[in-house]
Structures are given as structure tokens and as C-alpha cells.
Design a protein around this nucleic acid. Structure first.
Length: 660
RNA sequence: GCCUGGGUAGCUCAGUCGGUAGAGCAACGCAUUCGUAAUGCGUAGGUCAGGAGUUCGAAUCUCCUCCCAGGCUCCA
């Protein structure tokens, strides 16, 4: 028997008898590796351990702690979930069950269109653990299309998948388990076979560090016109330690949830009397908003923006001209009728108003780029199931601007705009970004192919030049143009969509907005839509979660609280507060009606950046005790002037907040 | 909009078999005067989300509506 050569990740090569599998390779390398091995990456593709290796292959053994290893574990866990459900609900149809970030899911249709309830999770979990204890091997088989159709004749979703590929439809879908002439399956017992490309762990015994998390409805193939299936989500890991760490991460994320902190810190609320997705900002949240908006305004002044204002409602015709009633109507509140049948709509966007400001008189090329800025409140009738805290609301304020420029100015304008955006976000303490390019939405767009192509390639070039990671989002653009959105990663690694920059050739055309060019010709400007916060509400939510409520001093609603040790120190406390208030510091005195410890605790729970404690020594010497947020080590004897300087400097440079 | 779960005092929650509402914290009052994360005592606080039904009797069982959470679809 001749040998084959394989190359390992470290560059070395090994010689193995022909027909050897990746498991044989692992065993040849070491006992420990053979025990850990879950699958193999062969010439860049994930394969089962048991599969014979081709000659001259580049092979990496996939072990549990790696990303590939986790994917295999999660995918295999999904199979075990499906097997458990078919055991408990004989006749259940199973659809798809992939690995996802941190876990897996599987979609089912239960006999009689029954639904899972939360209580079912415990039974399914127990059944999965029984299957895992049975140590069932995963074995791969390949069949012809016809054999595959016969094998899954009782599984309509599998039949649909096989047929779709066999007929060459859906070429955009990644269905590696079916190729035009063969289907592959995995059986982990004679009683359960699934259509699957693999690979899988060698045996169910390699699984078990999982938790079923929730049940949900999910449309077949993500299409709301197709039947809704029953989905079960789970998380799965290579060890109990990793599982526990993940569950703890989820708990941490919950502690910094802006909805929870918004109530705890008395920032905002959603009174049911007002309606879903409609927030009120309390004094503290209102202060935070004001500071954010004021800072944004001053940056926009520096950035060459003009400030404008527009009303919240407008006549039907405006939104016909803009195209909103044609393309965006389902997100708009129904009209109100007045003045004998005239319909008025709440505005879902500010752009039509800004175009009218542009059009209010003749414009010259000398005025361009013209940048019109407004904190514009818009209303969108979001479907009832999608509103969520401040991140998805029905009434919001956008830090919205529309830039009118010439075609020639467009690339430079976009490039400087991107710099402007990133600088502003950095000033708020967000530092980790990537860009997403959203292109023409299928079947829901105005304008010619050529215009879209030009807009998309211009945006792509600017994004590329920014040197940030660029992710494609095909079909994600607005109806009037493609967009770049800036995604920010927060302190615990989650990403949030922040700023959007959209190119628009259509709106100026629809409104017949023109300027007089240097050659005296009436010319259509390009319009750039951009919102840097996205919405003030969402931006605040992201900041609250990023900082876990510990807002940097410049953004904190209350920056300093002064506590007298005894009530005969209150006068000095008020003197200190008055002095700092003259600098514009947001400061309060908590008078000594309760014990000092209780007042300190209260201030700490409110996440106030600085607590000043003043007693006999301080009254004598004109000093303060400074207890900074995040510190367990209060300073004593700090002079008022020293603290005053330090605070002013921190606020001026926006400080260095403890984000973690 | 669809699927699952939930809604009891300002907040967090208990409330057994259907028998008429309870705790802690917060609030308020009085006392306490204190040097870095909870002083003591007392008082008040509820149309059990709303409505309808079953029942002698409903926080509890049934139905409808509203709202919230997690998903799906959608999105700033």
C-alpha cells in the first residue's frame, strides 16, 4: 500500500498510509489530539474525521475550543435537538437547523400545527441529554436526488430543499447538503436521519454543554408570506466553563440594558397612556439629551452646516412628490383629514422639507455644498412587534442634515463627511467601527440602473478609502439611494448601527430642485442624507449600554454631589456647590438628614461621577473629600481650587470614562 | 403583523385548593448629627393592566382588548 503526504498547519508534512482518515492523522500526531479531535479542515473545507484524506492535502485538526470546533458542536447539537423533538412529537416535520453565533436553532412544524410552549424546553432538554448519553455515532451517507426524495418523502421541507437545488433554482442560497446530482445525509441512529452537508462530531457523546434558551415563531425561509414554523434556540459550547461564561456574559449585558438603567437612573419612561414606542425624557434624561445635542450643534457649526427647522406635518402632495407615499407608506401614520378633505401626514423623514428650503429661491453653484441641519422629530408607524426601548421607537429625533452639492463635489464631500462622523462618535467615547454598504433594494427603488451604479460605486470608494472594515449589505439601501452605515462596537463587543450616510439622485429630480451652474445651465444637485447619531434616542441608548450607565462626566446629568458630614456643615457644602455651579457644573447638595453612609450609597447607586464629603477639617481649611466613581479610595484634603481645575479639564476634554 | 412568555404598591417580588391583599426597598412624619456603599420608630400607599363571563364568592378559572419581554419579518 502506498503512502500519501499531508501538510499540517505548522508547515510540516506527514506521511500516512493511503486511505487514512483525519482521525488516523490525529492519532499519529498524539493521543491527546485524537481524543480532542472533532472534525478536520481539509484544503480549507470542513470534513468529518472519518473521511479518507486525499493525497497532498493541507489538513488541520478541528478541536473543541476553536471557532470551527464550536460551529461543529453547535450544528451537531441542532441535530440532536431535532432528533429529540421527533422522538417526543412523532410525525414532526423538521426544516433547517444551523449553527449561529453562540449557539444553534432548529425549525419545526409539529403535528396538527401544535406550538411549543416554554415548558416543553425542559422535556426536550432531557431527551437531548438521553440521546447524548446513548453515544450515537454520526454517520454520513450519499444518495442520488431520487433516492434523497424517497428517503425524505415524509419531510416536506427537506423535499422542498432537494427539489429547489435539483431544479437549479435558488442559486443564491447556500445549500451544500445538496449538489445538482447528489444529496448527503447524516444518521446518528437508524431512527433519525437528516439532510446535511456536515461535518459533525464523531458521536453525540461529544456534546452536552448546552442550554435551550427559548422558543420562537420563525417564517419558513424568513418569508412572512410562508408558513410560520416553531423555532427552538439553544446555546452550546465546548465545556461547561465556556457555557457558564457565556451565560454570565448575558447576565452582564442585562445589567447594562438601557431600559433597565433608564428606569433606575430616572432618565426616561414609556407611559402606556402615550403609546408604544413613544418615550418621555425625565429631567435627568433631558439633561443628558441637551448636552448631547448642544455638543452636536457646536460641531455642526464648525462643520459648515446651516441650521433650519421644519414642521411635523405636511400635506399629502409633499409625500407623493417625495415618493414616501409610494415606497414608505406602510411605515407612516395614517393621515388626518381637515380643511374639507385635505390630508395631512406626520413626517417620517425630514428630507422633503429640506428640499423645499433649498428650492425656496434660486440657488447658485457658488452656494454649494449647502448643508442644512436640523434636530428633526419624525414619526414612523413601526409594527407592534418591533418597538424596543429607545432603539426602536415610533417617535424619534434625528440629527438630520441634507447636503446639496455638485456631482464633482460629491466624492470629497462624502470623504470629509465620513471623517466628521467618526470624529464625533469618538468624542462620545466610541472607538471601534466598521462600515456597511447597503445597495439597491430589489423591486423597491426609484431611479435608473446607471444612477444606482454610480451612487453605489462612489460610496464604496469612499468607504474603502476610510480604511475601515467594509461589510456588504446587498439590497439594504433606501428606496431613493444606497447608504453607508457606521456600525460601532460597544464596551462588551456588541455592534450597533449608528450613523447613516445616503446618496440620493432621485429626490432633487422629483422636486425639480436645481441650481445655476457656472456655465449658466440649470443643473440638478446631488443630495446626501446623513444622520450621525442615527436618532438621538438610539444614540443615547447605545451610550448608556456602552458605559453601563456610568456616563462620562461631561454627559452625566448630575456631575457632583456635595454631602456635609453633619448638618452644621451644610452651609459650607452649599458654598462649595455655588462655587462650582458658577463654572457650569451640574451639582447638588444632599443635606445631612440621613447618615453619611446612606447618602454616599445613594449617590453611588445613582452613578454620580464625584461625591464630595465635607466635614470639620474641610470647613477649617477650605478643602474637600473627593470620592470619585469607580474608586474605593476617597481622597482627603483636596483644595477647592484644585478640584475645580481638575473637573473643568476633565469636562473640557470629555474625560476618560470607565466604559467597562 | 405573527409565535412564545409575562403584567399584583413608585421598584423587586410573595400570594397554597377559588374564600375578599402581603414583604423588602423607595416615599412621607418624628427622633437621630454621623468622615466615605443601608440609623431607629411610625404612617401612608392597591379598581391585582382594562373589560366581559363562569361561580354564593375570582389576583387565582374562561374569553376579548391594551401594554411589556424574547424571537420572526422590518428598521434610525
Amino acid at each position: 500500500m502506498s503512502d500519501i503526504q499531508v501538510q499540517l498547519p505548522d508547515g510540516s508534512s506527514r506521511s500516512l498510509p493511503a486511505g487514512s482518515s483525519a482521525l488516523d492523522l490525529a492519532a499519529a500526531i498524539g493521543k491527546r489530539l485524537a481524543k480532542d479531535a472533532l472534525a478536520a479542515e481539509v484544503n480549507g473545507e470542513l470534513k468529518d474525521l472519518a473521511e479518507p484524506l486525499p493525497a497532498d492535502a493541507v489538513v488541520a485538526i478541528v478541536t473543541p475550543g476553536s471557532e470551527n470546533g464550536r460551529d461543529v458542536i453547535r450544528h451537531s447539537s441542532a441535530h440532536v435537538l431535532a432528533q429529540a423533538v421527533t422522538r417526543l412529537w412523532p410525525g414532526a416535520h423538521y426544516a433547517i437547523g444551523p449553527a449561529i453565533a453562540d449557539g444553534f436553532y432548529y425549525d419545526f412544524e409539529l403535528p396538527g400545527h401544535a406550538h411549543f410552549s416554554d415548558d416543553d424546553l425542559g422535556r426536550i432538554d432531557a431527551e437531548m441529554r438521553a440521546i447524548i448519553a446513548e453515544d450515537q455515532p454520526f454517520t454520513r451517507h450519499e444518495y442520488t436526488i431520487d433516492e434523497g426524495l424517497a428517503l425524505f418523502k415524509d419531510q416536506p421541507f427537506k423535499v422542498e430543499i432537494i427539489n429547489a437545488v435539483a431544479q437549479g433554482a435558488n442559486d443564491e442560497e447556500d445549500l451544500g447538503e445538496v449538489s445538482p446530482n447528489a444529496v448527503s445525509t447524516y444518521s446518528n441512529s437508524p431512527a433519525f436521519t437528516d439532510l446535511c452537508r456536515g461535518p459533525h462530531v464523531p458521536s453525540t457523546a461529544r456534546l452536552g454543554h448546552f442550554k435551550l434558551t427559548r422558543v420562537a415563531g420563525a417564517y419558513w425561509r424568513g418569508d412572512e408570506r410562508r408558513p410560520q414554523l416553531q423555532r427552538i434556540y439553544g446555546t452550546a459550547w465546548e465545556s461547561d466553563a465556556a457555557l457558564v461564561a457565556h451565560l454570565e456574559f448575558l447576565e452582564q449585558a442585562e445589567l447594562r440594558d438601557h431600559r433597565r438603567l433608564g428606569a433606575e437612573l430616572d432618565l426616561f419612561s414609556f407611559p402606556t397612556e402615550i403609546g408604544p414606542g413613544l418615550a418621555v425624557f425625565h429631567p435627568k434624561g433631558g439633561t443628558m439629551r441637551r448636552v448631547m445635542e448642544d455638543y452636536s450643534r457646536s460641531r455642526h457649526v464648525d462643520g459648515g452646516y446651516e441650521f433650519v427647522n421644519s414642521p411635523h406635518i405636511a400635506k399629502e402632495d409633499l409625500f407623493n412628490t417625495s415618493g414616501h407615499l409610494q415606497w414608505f407608506a406602510e411605515s407612516m401614520y395614517p393621515p388626518m383629514e381637515l380643511d374639507g378633505g385635505q390630508k395631512y401626514y406626520l413626517k417620517p423623514m425630514n428630507c422633503p422639507f429640506h428640499v423645499l428650503i433649498f428650492k425656496s429661491r434660486q440657488r447658485s453653484y457658488r452656494e454649494l455644498p449647502l448643508r442644512l441641519f436640523e434636530f428633526g422629530s419624525v414619526y414612523r408607524y413601526e409594527k407592534s412587534g418591533v418597538v424596543q426601548g429607545l432603539t426602536r421607537v415610533r417617535g424619534m429625533t434625528q440629527d438630520d442634515a441634507h447636503i446639496f452639492c455638485t456631482r464633482e463635489q460629491m466624492p470629497d464631500e462624502l470623504a470629509s463627511l465620513l471623517t466628521f462622523v467618526l470624529d464625533l462618535l469618538r468624542d462620545f467615547g466610541l472607538n471601534d467601527f466598521y462600515l456597511e454598504l447597503s445597495t439597491r433594494p430589489e423591486g423597491k427603488a426609484v431611479g435608473t440602473d446607471q444612477e444606482w451604479t454610480e451612487a453605489e460605486s462612489t460610496l464604496a470608494a469612499v468607504a474603502l478609502a476610510a480604511g475601515l472594515e467594509l461589510v456588504q449589505d446587498p439590497g439594504g439601501g433606501a428606496f431613493y439611494g444606497p447608504k453607508i452605515s457606521v456600525q460601532a462596537r460597544d464596551a462588551i463587543g456588541r455592534t450597533h448601527q449608528m450613523s447613516t450616510i445616503q446618496l440620493d439622485f432621485q429626490t432633487p429630480q422629483r422636486f425639480e430642485a436645481t441650481y445655476i451652474a457656472s456655465d449658466n445651465a440649470r443643473t440638478q444637485p446631488i443630495m446626501i442624507h446623513r444622520a450621525l447619531f442615527g436618532s438621538v434616542e438610539r444614540f443615547m441608548a447605545v451610550l448608556i449600554e456602552h458605559y453601563a450607565g456610568n456616563m462620562p462626566t461631561w454627559l452625566s446629568p448630575e456631575q457632583v454631589r456635595v454631602l456635609g458630614v453633619r448638618d452644621d456643615h451644610d452651609a459650607y457644602a452649599r458654598y462649595v456647590a455655588d462655587a462650582l455651579a458658577l463654572d457650569g457644573v451640574r451639582i447638588h447638595v444632599d443635606e445631612a438628614s440621613e447618615p453619611l453612609g446612606a447618602r454616599i450609597r445613594k449617590a453611588k447607586l445613582e452613578k454620580i461621577p464625584y461625591i464630595l464629603v465635607v466635614g470639620d477639617d474641610d470647613v477649617d481649611k477650605g478643602t474637600l473629600g473627593v470620592n470619585a466613581r469607580g474608586s474605593n479610595d476617597p481622597e482627603r484634603g483636596v483644595t477647592l481650587s484644585a478640584f475645580r481645575e481638575r473637573l473643568a479639564e476633565e469636562i473640557a476634554v470629555h474625560g476618560s470614562p470607565e466604559a467597562k
